[in-house]
Design a protein around this nucleic acid. Structure first.
Lengths: 226, 226
DNA sequence: TGATATTTGTGAGTATGCTCACGTTTTTTC
DNA sequence: GAAAAAACGTGAGCATACTCACAAATATCA
C-alpha cells in the first residue's frame, strides 16, 4: 500500500521519528520518491520550489552561481534534508542541488511540512536543531575558506571525504578538479598542482580518481596550520 | 510587576507574538534583561552558554576567532535573536557577540525556550523561518566574500550600513578599519587604501567616522561587478 | 574501435592584496 | 590639558594564487 510508505520506511529522519501513526500516514500521502543519476540536477537555482526534499540515498552537492562563477556550498550524504531554507523562506530556489552519485530523494509537500511543524513540537525541534548545526558548520567553513591557504583547504577537503563521507582512507573522489576548486574557492589548475605536490610529498596516492591518504596525520597538521 | 515584563513588552519578536498569555508569563519569569556598553562582550567564544539572547535595542557583531585571526560573521541590529544555534546545538559558544553600540539584551533560559518550541507550533515556525533566512544570507555572504574583489566588498559594506542598518546615506561607521577588514576578509591597510580611493573618485565623503554616500548608484555598480 | 569531448597537467607571466615598517592623527585617561 | 594609547595613512617589496595557452590523458559515444 503506497500510503504506508513512510510508516514502513526504515531510514526515517530524527524528526520523522517523532511523528505518530496518523501524521506518518499524512506524510506518506503527500510525498513522492524520485531517483536521480549522477550529474542530474535535483534543485535548480532560480527555479520555483514547493517541496522539501529528504535525501534517502546518495550524495549531492549544493551550489550557488554568481557572475558566471560557481561555488559549492556543501556536500551532503544521505540521509539528510535538502532545501529547507530555500523552500520555506520564499518560493524561489537560492541555490542548486545536484547528484554526485546516484541518489534517491523524497519530495515532501511544503504545506504538509509546515503542518507537521505546527502540530508536532518534537518534529519542529529536530528541524531547528538540524538548521542550527548547519549554520554552525557554515560559519566554520566560511572562516576557513577565507583564512586558510590552498594547502590547508585541499587537506581539509581530502580529510572531509575520508572521514565524513566515505569512512575510509581510500576513496573515489566524486568531484573533478574544477568542482574541487569551486568547493574551496580556487581554480582547477591550482588544485591540480596542489594534489601533485601532496603526491610528491607522499601524503597521498592517486590512481585516476581513487585517492589514498597515506599520511593523514600530516594532512591534519597542514589543515590546522592553514 | 516584574513577571509581566514580557506581557507588556512592545518590541516582541514575531515568534513571541504567537504566545498566549500564560506562555508570555512563563517567558517573563525565565528571562532577564541586561544592558551593554559599546565594546562589551555579550557572548564569548568557547565559554559555556545556557541562554538564548533577544537583542531588544542596539547593534552587535558576531565573530569567530581562528588561528589568532578574527572574522566578523554578521552585524545585527535590534530587534533580533542572538546565539540560537550556538546555544541549542551544544553548550559551548562557537562564536562571540559584542556590542558595537550601547545595547539591551534579554537572556532567555534555554529550557523555557525549548518548552515554547515544543508547545507552540507557530512560535517554532517563526524560529525556523528566522534560522532559514539567516542561512540563506550566510550563503550569499560567503559566496561574495570569496568571489568579489576588495572594491566590491567595500562597496557592499558601505551600502549595507546605509540601507540595512541606518537607512540613511550619511551615517557613523560603527567599526574601525581593522574590523572592516575582518568583516570582508582583508587587512586594515587595504581598507584604508580603498576608502581613500573611493573618496578620491567622489563616491563617498568621510569626516572622521562619518560617511556620506555621494554616489550610491556607482557603488551599486562596483558591488555588482565585484 | 575509432573519433570526439571532457578532464587534467604544466609553464610563464602577472595582478591583487599582504606584510612590514614607520609616521601621523585621533581618542582616551588621568 | 598633557601623556599615553589606540587608530589610521602610506610606501616598498613580496608572495600567493590567477590567467592564459596548449599539450596530454582519459572518458564517452557512435
Amino acid at each position: 500500500m503506497i500510503k504506508e510508505k513512510c510508516l514502513t520506511c526504515d531510514i526515517k529522519s530524527a524528526a520523522v521519528g517523532h511523528l505518530d501513526e496518523s501524521q506518518l500516514r499524512i506524510l506518506g500521502e503527500n510525498c513522492a520518491e524520485a531517483s536521480f543519476k549522477k550529474g542530474e540536477v535535483i534543485i535548480k537555482q532560480d527555479s520555483l520550489s514547493s517541496n522539501i526534499i529528504y535525501l534517502k540515498d546518495g550524495l549531492v552537492k549544493t551550489s550557488m552561481e554568481w557572475n558566471h562563477k560557481n561555488q559549492i556550498l556543501n556536500i551532503i550524504k544521505a540521509p539528510a534534508y535538502l532545501g529547507i531554507p530555500t523552500t520555506l523562506v520564499d518560493k524561489v530556489n537560492h541555490y542548486s542541488v545536484s547528484a554526485l552519485e546516484d541518489s534517491i530523494a523524497c519530495f515532501i509537500d511544503i504545506n504538509t511540512f509546515k503542518m507537521l511543524i505546527d502540530r508536532n513540537g518534537k518534529f519542529a525541534y529536530e528541524i531547528i536543531i538540524h538548521l542550527c548545526k548547519n549554520e554552525l558548520l557554515q560559519y566554520r567553513r566560511c572562516v576557513y575558506r577565507s583564512q586558510k591557504h590552498i594547502p590547508g583547504l585541499v587537506a581539509d577537503t581530502l580529510l572531509f571525504f575520508s572521514s565524513e563521507i566515505y569512512m575510509d582512507e581510500t576513496f573515489r573522489l566524486p568531484i573533478d578538479r574544477g568542482e574541487f576548486g569551486d568547493l574551496i574557492g580556487t581554480t582547477r589548475e591550482t588544485v591540480s598542482r596542489m594534489l601533485k605536490e601532496f603526491q610528491e610529498d607522499h601524503l597521498i596516492e592517486m590512481k585516476g580518481k581513487v585517492v589514498t591518504l597515506v599520511n593523514p596525520d600530516r594532512l591534519i597538521m597542514i589543515s590546522m596550520h592553514g
